[in-house]
Design a protein around this nucleic acid. Structure first.
Lengths: 210, 210
DNA sequence: CTGAAAATAGACCGAAAGGTTTAAGACAAT
DNA sequence: ATTGTCTTAAACCTTTCGGTCTATTTTCAG
């Protein structure tokens, strides 16, 4: 028997998933969770073999759950379920020890196959994602996340500028001079290859910096 | 027997949905579709009582399907399934004749209830959405969404400015002078009570104008 | 037909943003 | 001890942005 815990923030999707997996006689669904916190609690107390985890959830999201599971060295293997393929997220997920990545756009029998394979000790990664993710791993470090290239102070500035604050306001909030804010922004623009603050704002949103 | 057709671009979600609804003995699932075109074909040939339709789909999306069904006067009632509540979309959907709107974040038994009620001739609209949507309908025109207060040309400008284009670039793209772009932006700022283009960018994203 | 709203644009101003150079103190790593 | 990055900041400059005023043309509803 393969013991499962499922997590997805949409109950309807979650129930549907449960129904699909219930059809497999060797699967046992121990719990279904609609948020990251519940998922963690369930994994800790029930010790399932496999956790099927939605990447995007309000509050504690999939990556956070994954991080905690790895940190606490819980033996549960994790299969990520995601609607859209975001290279960065997938790469991060693989680093975090996710053993499977599947798309909601895949046929549901593939999910079943994936769970079996992962439980047997294998890996199941979505072709499209692996191809690009591997490239990044090989290119190693250099251009992982451009955001990582930003210093802490620069991140402060980015967050504020991305919310629409003016240089003067940023300077006041950070207790530095406007000149310094401008320097930081200038450096940020160079590092990220960006031309103005609207683009910066879009970038920050995209990367979840705000 | 209530005859159903289901449409959602994610097979896994679709199968899950089918499994959930299959549990109801008085439901008959005639077809499941992963895109708008299939959904339309299925509705036309199978004439189901109810179509459960995902709003966001690649290609022909939910609203388009709805539009065609209304135009062709097919007798199928439509229940919209959506992950996030977008006022504009919901309002549009109600206008298009959708009889039910449910969220993926709702408990799955509510979906079942919704289908029954809609099939019986009733309506089922998500409280949150109806509240605001009705307000808009009642307040009629005047101050619907502030975005509605913007003229078509102003919307053009908003979209471009929100993407990070400079006034000069916008002027070139729209074949107008930079002075005009500035005037438009000035008026937009007044109408939306906004101070700079980063805020405008955030506003545009929020309202789905980009 | 007429008045209102929308779109166009020129001119001018001051404020804000962006670019460049130079420099100095703090702190970590080698 | 020295190198390097981070942070701070001044001075100077150009470009862009936002505000204001005026004015013409178009378009559409009353």
């Amino acid at each position: 028997m393969i013991k499962l815990v499922l997590a997805d923030d949409h109950p309807i999707v979650l129930d549907g998933l449960a129904q699909i997996l219930k059809l497999e006689s060797d699967f046992a669904i121990l719990a279904t969770c609609t948020n990251g916190e519940d998922a963690l609690t369930s994994v800790r107390t029930l010790r399932p073999d496999v956790l099927v985890l939605d990447l995007r959830m309000p509050g504690t999201d999939g990556l956070s759950v994954l991080r905690t599971i790895k940190k606490d060295q819980i033996g549960t293997t994790v299969v990520l379920l995601t609607a859209a393929l975001d290279e960065k997220e997938v790469l991060e997920a693989i680093r975090m020890g996710a053993r499977g990545v599947i798309l909601k756009s895949m046929a549901s029998r593939l999910l079943v196959q994936c769970i079996r394979k992962v439980h047997a000790g294998g890996q199941w990664l979505e072709k499209e994602s692996v191809a690009s993710a591997l490239q990044h791993i090989l290119h190693n470090q250099t251009s992982t996340t451009p955001a990582a290239a930003l210093s802490p102070r620069e991140l402060d500035v980015v967050k504020m500028a991305a919310q629409g604050l003016r240089n003067k306001q940023i300077a006041e909030k950070l207790f530095i001079s406007e000149a310094t804010v401008k320097i930081h922004l200038h450096n940020i623009y160079e590092k990220l290859n960006i031309g103005n603050r609207v683009e910066l704002s879009l970038y920050a949103r995209e990367k979840g910096l705000v």
